[in-house]
C-alpha cells in the first residue's frame, strides 16, 4: 500500500490545483440523464489510456515491454471503421478488429516467448510495421463513418454513466479477478521475477507470456475502438500515436518496476489518471496547450524522483534527518550476492 501513497498524493494535488482556476471542478451533475463534470471528463477521456495501461502492466510484470500497442490502437480503429463503411455490421466489425488484435498480440508473445527475442525489439517490429499496416487498411486516408451504434462505444452513455468508463471498470474487474483471485498474478510475477527458476518450478511460462501479450493487444484494440468511435473516424497515421509511451509511464508511475516482478493494477490506474488529469488541468488553467509536453516532462520527472529510493535517501539526508540509510539498489545487489550479508 505504501507504494501507492506518492502517486495518490500527486493526483490529489493536481486535482486540488484545479479548484483555484475552476471552482466548479469537483461538481458532478446529471444532465439529460447523463453524468457531467470535469471529473467525469477525466475518466471518460482517460479511458483508452487506462485500458492500454492495464494491458501494459501485465506485460511489464513478466519482465517485458510492449511498444506496439499504439500501432494496434490504430489498426483496430482502422479495421472496425473500414468494416462499418463497407456495411459489415457492428458485431462483425468489432469482432474482426478485436480478433486481429488478438492475433497481433499473440504474434508478439510468440516472438518473445517461443523465439526468444528481447521484448523491446520484438514489439518494435510491430510498432514500426503496424503503423504501415494501419495506413494500408485505410489506404492512407481518414475513414469517416456515421454509425450511431458504433458511436456508443466511445461517446455513449448507459444508465447515465459514460459507456467508456463502464468498459474500463469491466476490463479492470476481469483483470483483477484473473490475476488476484485466480493464480495468474502470482505466476506472472514469478516469471517476471526469475524466468529460469519459474521454468524449473514447472511453470509453463510460454503460454502465460503469449496470453499476456495477447491481452495487452486486446486492451489496446478496445481502446482503439473507443478512440475511433469517439471521433467517428479512423486515422491510421495518428490514432494512438505515442500512447505506448504514456501507458509505460502510467505503469511506472504506478510503482511497477520495468524490470518485471511485482505489479500493481491500482497503481497503474492512478498513474494513467495522473497523466490524463495533467492534460485536462493544463487546458483548464489556461496554459497554452503547446506547453503540455513541458508540464508532462516535469510531472513525470517529479513522480519518478519521489519514487526513487535513492532520491528520497539523499533528500532526507540533506535535511539532516538521520533516517536509517537504505542501501541503494546497487548495494542491495551486492549485499544479496554474497548471501552472507
Amino acid at each position: 500500500m505504501r507504494r501507492l501513497l506518492w502517486p495518490a498524493v500527486v493526483l490529489v494535488l493536481l486535482l486540488a490545483l484545479n479548484i483555484f482556476f475552476t471552482p466548479s471542478f469537483f461538481s458532478v451533475q446529471v444532465r439529460d440523464g447523463h453524468l457531467y463534470g470535469s471529473l467525469i471528463d477525466i475518466l471518460r477521456f482517460g479511458a483508452p489510456l487506462i485500458l492500454v495501461s492495464i494491458g501494459m502492466t501485465l506485460v511489464i510484470a513478466t519482465g517485458g515491454i510492449d511498444l506496439s500497442v499504439g500501432s494496434v490502437v490504430a489498426i483496430s480503429g482502422a479495421l472496425a471503421c473500414l468494416q462499418i463503411s463497407e456495411d459489415a455490421g457492428l458485431p462483425m466489425a468489432v469482432a474482426a478488429a478485436l480478433g486481429l488484435c488478438l492475433v497481433l498480440g499473440a504474434w508478439n508473445g510468440f516472438l518473445v516467448a517461443a523465439v526468444g527475442i528481447q521484448p523491446i525489439i520484438a514489439t518494435l517490429i510491430l510498432m514500426v510495421a503496424g503503423r504501415g499496416l494501419a495506413q494500408l487498411i485505410t489506404d492512407g486516408q481518414i475513414i469517416t463513418i456515421n454509425d450511431p451504434a458504433y458511436k456508443v462505444i466511445g461517446g455513449g452513455y448507459w444508465l447515465t454513466v459514460p459507456f467508456g468508463i463502464l468498459v474500463v471498470i469491466a476490463v479492470l474487474g476481469i483483470t483483477a479477478f484473473l490475476t488476484r483471485r485466480l493464480a495468474l498474478g502470482m505466476l506472472i510475477e514469478s516469471v517476471g521475477g526469475n524466468a529460469e527458476a519459474s521454468r524449473l518450478a514447472g511453470i509453463r511460462a510460454r503460454g502465460i507470456v503469449i496470453m499476456v501479450y495477447a491481452s495487452a493487444a486486446l486492451c489496446a484494440g478496445v481502446a482503439g475502438l473507443m478512440i475511433s468511435s469517439n471521433v467517428s473516424s479512423a486515422d491510421g497515421n495518428n490514432a494512438g500515436l505515442w500512447i505506448e509511451l504514456d501507458a509505460i509511464l502510467a505503469v511506472v508511475i504506478g510503482g511497477t518496476s520495468l524490470a518485471g516482478g511485482r505489479f500493481s493494477l491500482s497503481g497503474t490506474v492512478l498513474g494513467a489518471l495522473i497523466i490524463q488529469t495533467l492534460t485536462t488541468t493544463i487546458y483548464s488553467i489556461g496554459v497554452p496547450p503547446e506547453t503540455t509536453l513541458l508540464f508532462k516532462a516535469l510531472v513525470v520527472t517529479a513522480v519518478c524522483l519521489i519514487q526513487s529510493p535513492s532520491f528520497r535517501a539523499k533528500a532526507f539526508r540533506r535535511r539532516g534527518r538521520s533516517a536509517p540509510t537504505q542501501p541503494s539498489p546497487e548495494e542491495r545487489v551486492l549485499a544479496g550476492r554474497g548471501g552472507t550479508a
Partner: peptide, 18 residues
C-alpha cells in the same frame, strides 16, 4: 537517482518537444 533510462529519456523527449 537510479531511475530507468527508458523513463528518464522519455521525460527528456517530452521536454525537448515541449
Amino acid at each position: 537517482f537510479d531511475i530507468q533510462p527508458f523513463i528518464v529519456t522519455l521525460a527528456g523527449m517530452f521536454l525537448a518537444r515541449g
